[in-house]
Design a protein around this nucleic acid. Structure first.
Lengths: 361, 361
DNA sequence: GTGAAAGCGCTAACAA
DNA sequence: TTGTTAGCGCTTTCAC
C-alpha cells in the first residue's frame, strides 16, 4: 500500500463521512441556482436583499441556502463590488504602549463590537518595525484589502499617517492629530478633562497641584496638560513648570515621574492616565506618605484598575467603548459619503469621584 | 456658485493635485504590462517572484511598478489563488476577560508580530453575543475570508469550536481543549507551571500552601491546579480542598478569592495568574498582613505588572509572545500541509523569583 | 421579475 | 522565456 493510494483512500473516506479533512469543493452560487431552478442572478438578488424577486422564489432560494449552508465567497464578492467588508485599525510603530496600556485593548474592543454590529470584519495592523510599516502600508492604502482605516493618532509627522493620507482608502484618525491637518478625526475632549481634574483638586483646597503629563508628542498628552494650565490660569494661579513632569502613559513612567515630583512636595497631582497613577501611588507609598492625606491624586481614563487601587482612584472617565463605536460609525459615513468635509467628533469626559482626591463623598 | 458646481471644482482640483480626495481609478496589472511592453502574465510572474523571467525584463517591470506605486488588487488575487493572506484570531463570547486580562493583549501582539513577519494580515474576531457568533462564524469558516483560524480555547463544548471544526478552514486552538478532541493545539505546560510554583513554596518551608485557581472550565485553570495537586501529592502531603479557591483570572476575582482564604490562615498561596495575584496582595494588605513574611505568594504569567507590585511578584513566566508567534507558524504549517496528523505544541515555563515568595535572592 | 452575459483584476495552464 | 487564454465566483447592467 503506497502513499498515494493511502492518500486517495483517506480522501474517499473523508468524502463519505462528509467531514472537512479534505473538503469537497464549496458550493457556488450556480449550484444554488440550479437546485432552485433559477438563474445565478436571482440567487444573487436574494442574497443581497434586492427588491423585484417574487416572494415565492425568494423563499425557495432561501430554503435551499439554509439547507445547504451555502455561504458566498467573499473574495469573489469583493472583486465584483469593490468592497471587502473589512475595516482596518492601525497602530503605528511609534505607539509602543499598545500592550502595556489597557486603554488600547479597550478601544479595540469598542471598535470590534461596532464592526460586529455593522457586519464588518476588523483587521488589526500592529506595526513594530519600520520594515513592518514599509511592507504593510502600501497594501493597506490600496483598494482591495480594507474599505476604510482607523489610524491611532501619534507623534507629529508620523510616516504612517502621511502615507495613509496619500492613499486611496478612506480613513479616520483616532485622536486629534498634533498638527492642524485637514483630516477627519474623533477625539475625547482632553483639554476639558484636564481642566475638570485640576479644578476639582483646587476646589478641595490643594495649594501645590502638580501634574504628570502624557507624552508631549501626543495630542492627548498636550491637551490634558493644557487643561491643567487653563485651570490654574483661570484662577489667577501661577504655573510652576517644575511641577509639570512628563510621563509615557506606562505604570513605570508614572512611578519615576512621581519620584521626581516628591522632593518638590506637591499636595496634589493630576496624573494624565490611570496606568501612570498606579505607578505614582506606588512611589508615594514607598516614601511613606499617604493618599489622599498628604497628596491627593486624580487619574484619567477610568479603567477598571481605578476601582481597585488603594485608595480607589478619583479619575476622569473617558467613554472608551463609545469612542471605538463612534469611530466605526464615522468611518462608515466617510466611506459612504466621501471624506469631505472632514468630520470632527469630540466626546465629552466626566469626573468620577472616589477616595484618592480626598473629597468627602 | 451652487453645491454641485463646487463639488465638481473640488474634484477637478484634486485630480490636478493628484491627491486622493476623489481618486482616479487604480492601476491594474494590464496598465503596468502595457507600459513595460510585456504581457500581464509576465508582470504577474515578476510580482510573484517566479523564475523564468529574463532579468532585464524583470528589472524593467520592477522599475515601472516602483515609479507608478502600483499595488495588486488583493481581492482579485484572492479570487484567483483561493488564498486571502489573512489569518483570523477568534475570541469566543465565553472568554469574557479579553479586555481585563492583559494576557490577551500580549498574545494578540505575538500573533500580530508573526503575521507581519510572514506577510499575513491579522483579522480579529471578538464575539460578545450569541448573535455575533451566529452571524460571523459562517463567514469565518468558509473559504474566501481567512486562510486559517486561531481559536482561543475556552469552556468545554463551546459552540464556536464546534462550528470551526465543522468548517472548511484550517484552524489551531490556542490552549488545550478541555475535552480530548482530535484537533491541533498549542499550549503552555500549565501542569508543569503549577507544579514549579507549588514546589518552590514548599521548598521554602511553607506548610499551609493554598491556591487561587483559574476558572475550572478552562484547561489553563484545570492544569495549573493539577500541577499544584501533583506537587503536594509527590511530597506525601494531604491536599486540603478548603485551601483551593476558584478565581476568574481577574484582579477582582483574585481579591475575593483571597478574602475567602484568609480566615484559613495559609502561609503561602499559588495564584494562577498575575492579575489575580494583584488582587490577592490587596486583600492581604487590607487585613494588615505582610507578604512574604506572613503569606508568600507566587503568581503566573510574568506580565509587566509583576515587577511593579509591592513586593514584586515571584511568578511563572509564560513565553506569551513566543506563544503567539509559534501559533502562527503552526497554523501556516497546517494550511500548507493539511491538518492531519493533528499538531500538538507545548511550550515550557520558567520560575521567576522576586520578593513575594520570601526566597532570599 | 428574471436571465444572459459581461466584467471585477489577477493567476496559471498551455502553447508557442 | 514569454504570451494567450481560460477561469476564480460574484454582481450588475441590459434585454426580455
Amino acid at each position: 500500500m503506497n502513499f498515494v493510494y493511502w492518500l486517495r483512500l483517506l480522501k474517499t473516506l473523508s468524502q463519505i463521512k462528509g467531514n472537512a479533512f479534505m473538503s469537497k469543493r464549496p458550493l457556488r452560487i450556480a449550484d444554488i441556482a440550479k437546485k432552485a431552478g433559477v438563474s445565478p442572478a436571482t440567487v444573487s438578488r436574494v442574497l443581497n436583499n434586492h427588491p423585484y424577486v417574487r416572494d415565492e422564489i425568494r423563499q425557495r432560494v432561501l430554503k435551499i441556502i439554509e439547507e445547504t449552508g451555502y455561504q458566498p465567497n467573499l473574495a469573489a464578492r469583493s472583486l465584483a463590488t469593490q468592497r471587502t467588508g473589512i475595516l482596518g485599525f492601525v497602530i503605528p510603530r511609534t505607539v509602543h504602549t499598545f500592550f502595556s496600556d489597557p486603554y488600547f485593548a479597550r478601544v479595540t474592543e469598542g471598535i470590534a463590537q461596532a464592526c460586529n454590529a455593522h457586519d464588518y470584519t476588523l483587521s488589526l495592523f500592529l506595526f513594530y518595525t519600520v520594515e513592518d510599516e514599509r511592507r504593510m502600508i502600501p497594501r493597506l492604502t490600496r483598494k482591495g484589502l480594507v474599505d476604510g482605516i482607523i489610524v491611532q493618532s501619534t507623534h507629529l509627522q508620523d510616516e504612517v499617517l502621511m502615507r495613509v493620507m496619500d492613499g486611496e482608502v478612506p480613513f479616520l484618525l483616532a485622536g486629534r492629530p498634533v498638527a492642524p491637518l485637514n483630516v477627519s478625526y474623533i477625539d475625547v475632549d482632553n483639554v476639558a478633562g484636564g481642566y475638570q481634574a485640576t479644578v476639582h483638586l483646587l476646589q478641595l483646597g490643594r495649594k501645590r497641584v502638580a501634574t504628570i503629563a502624557g507624552p508631549l508628542t501626543t495630542s492627548a498628552g498636550i491637551d490634558r496638560l493644557e487643561g491643567y494650565r487653563k485651570a490654574l490660569r483661570e484662577r489667577g494661579l501661577p504655573v510652576d513648570e517644575q511641577l509639570i513632569v512628563e510621563g509615557d502613559f506606562t505604570e513605570m513612567g508614572g512611578y519615576y515621574a512621581m519620584r521626581r515630583l516628591l522632593p518638590l512636595e506637591p499636595d496634589a497631582v493630576f496624573v494624565a492616565s490611570d496606568g501612570m497613577a498606579v505607578g505614582a501611588l506606588r512611589a508615594i507609598r514607598e516614601v511613606g506618605k499617604q493618599v489622599p492625606r498628604d497628596i491627593a491624586i486624580v487619574g484619567y481614563d477610568d479603567l477598571p484598575i481605578a476601582q481597585s487601587t488603594t485608595p480607589p482612584l478619583t479619575t476622569i472617565r473617558q467613554p472608551i467603548l463609545r469612542f471605538g463605536a463612534r469611530a466605526v460609525e464615522v468611518l462608515l459615513d466617510i466611506i459612504e459619503n466621501g471624506s469631505s468635509p472632514p468630520r470632527r467628533v469630540v466626546l465629552g469626559t466626566e469626573l468620577v469621584v472616589r477616595a484618592s482626591c480626598g473629597a468627602t463623598i
